[in-house]
């Protein structure tokens, strides 16, 4: 047993709590390079349950313009993989909520997959979301490494994902499953209709071993409630980045409080 696996994974611990998970995505090094840890602290202080720290990438295929622009800005600010790990080195002295690094596979590949995972374990990162690291490739080449370092790999499913594939993803997962709400890139604002509700219900009824957390298209208290009625939680990204862009760090607390009015 490596040392990392002896520490209980914070994602698993939090998911055991029935209270709906409010999760926030933000781009590391945005709006300013040194804002990463300040944003994290404010999110925890405001009551956020789980944070996805975005490692910016030059070509974020699955993201809409908001997250893409924040990634471009963060890279311009000078954000790199090495710098992010440096910024997060002491993070577990002050942050106790689960932390996930979300990004694209190429920067992780260039850093070295094992070195990347070892760094995550050393810092106290609990999981990773790499939308363009497919299930087949993960299982073939990287699963053993993720397990060695006790890092949870979080997979996405979409309204088009077949039932058989959902079962396969559930079997390969051990944290939560990221339920993409609609066929879209991040930041769409159409809101949820009966189609989405039926989809959330359908997946919930599969009684998967992993809890479900919904992402894409959640931007206010109403959509948060819709997304979490049949699931364990929801992730807000683009709407949060917009708040950061418009109001800076002072906008974080009111925005987070507005999502769970009670």
């Amino acid at each position: 047993m490596s040392q990392a696996t002896t520490v209980p994974n914070r994602i698993k611990t939090r998911m055991a709590d029935p209270k709906k998970v409010l999760s926030i995505y933000f781009t590391a090094g945005y709006p300013k390079l040194e804002d990463t840890t300040k944003v994290l602290q404010q999110l925890q202080d405001s009551g956020v349950d789980l944070v996805e720290i975005g490692l910016p990438f030059s070509d974020p295929l699955a993201d809409g313009p908001t997250i893409q622009d924040s990634s471009t800005a963060a890279l311009k600010n000078g954000m790199t993989t090495t710098l992010l790990f440096e910024q997060l080195k002491e993070i577990r002295k002050s942050i106790h909520i689960p932390l996930i690094i979300m990004g694209y596979f190429n920067p992780m590949l260039q850093y070295g997959v094992e070195t990347f995972l070892a760094q995550c374990a050393a810092i106290g990162i609990d999981g990773i979301i790499m939308p363009d690291l497919p299930l087949a490739e993960y299982e073939l080449h990287y699963k053993a490494l993720f397990e060695k370092y006790g890092i949870k790999n979080i997979f996405l499913i979409t309204p088009q994902t077949s039932e058989a594939r959902i079962q396969a993803i559930d079997a390969a997962s051990d944290g939560f499953i990221y339920l993409v709400s609609t066929a879209s890139v991040t930041g769409s604002k159409s809101g949820f209709g009966t189609e989405q509700e039926a989809y959330f219900k359908r997946i919930a009824a599969m009684n998967l071993k992993n809890p479900l957390v919904v992402g894409f298209g959640i931007h206010d208290a109403h959509t948060f409630k819709q997304a979490t009625t049949h699931t364990s939680g929801a992730i807000i990204g683009s709407a949060f980045i917009k708040t950061l862009t418009q109001e800076g760090l002072a906008g974080i607390d009111p925005f987070i409080k507005s999502l769970r009015p009670h």
């Binding site: 990438f57 070509d59 890279l75 993989t81 694209y104 190429n106 590949l109 260039q110 850093y111």
Partner: peptide, 22 residues
């Protein structure tokens, strides 16, 4: 170029040491 991922394929591509596509 160095081995990496671009547009869904693992191939040789021009990138920074940090894996940003140039």
């Amino acid at each position: 170029g160095k081995e990496g991922i671009i547009h869904g394929s693992k191939t040789l591509l021009m990138q920074t040491p940090d894996g940003q596509i140039t």
